[in-house]
Amino acid sequence: MTHPSAVSATAPLTTNRTAVSLTDVHKTYPGGAQPVHAMRGVTLAIAAGSFTAVMGPSGSGKSTLLNVAAGLDGPTSGRIVIGDTDVSHLSADALTQFRRRHVGFIFQSYNLLPHLTVAENLRLPWWLDGRMADARRESELLAAVGLSDMAHRLPSELSGGQAQRVAIARALATQPAVIFADEPTGALDSHTGAAILDALREAVTAFHQTLVMVTHDPQVAAAADEVVFLADGAVVDRAAGLTAPQLSQRVLELGR
């Protein structure tokens, strides 16, 4: 789709740097009779420029990990560093500002504003940041996800796959230090899902981005540089180079 040569102004990141690190992070939801411990002392470092998959049975805390690491939700205790910034103690507004400049997020439910066009949804991070949208980067991104001719459509006029491509382009817009994706293909059929993942991986590679993705799909996880396994809110294993059937087996064992 897009070649790295077409990409401008992208600072190459070396793989030996850490993009995100979590140190002894706890997250507890005070609820009803018993509080829910969604994260119990997670310590994790994600290398810059890498693709990390997060797997685990339902309720293992995958989404919580993602939300907390991305600064969408605050930790109960522990330290989170994105790039060089400790975000665990930022105020709500400071965290939001940091997040929109340095963190990209792709949600399962696309989360496009229904009344804004594709191009306007893409420009939103710049607008929110009080900056002019970068027209060149905008067309680059639209080309990268194959939506150049749909810039003026509304989300309701897009298929699920197309909507998710817009969300991917939006996550890449501000050249964030890291992109978090929470089952980005969960709402799509397998064929579209595979195409979206290809687009995501290509874009991430082309723009030298770091990607952390929660997924249920062993095929997807098999393509990752590293797979992190979660169970009961804690990291129980990390692996690299496993095949899809091996990953599948691993998750099944954790679920027991």
Binding site: L72, A92, D93, T96, Q97, R99, R100, R101, F105, F107, N111, L112, L113, P114, H115, L124, P125, L128, D129, R170
Partner: peptide
């Protein structure tokens, strides 16, 4: 939901 979406995309409470 629309405002929550804006928050998720990076709008501050003030915005």
């Amino acid at each position: 939901r629309e405002f929550a979406l804006l928050r998720a995309v990076g709008a501050t409470g003030r915005q």
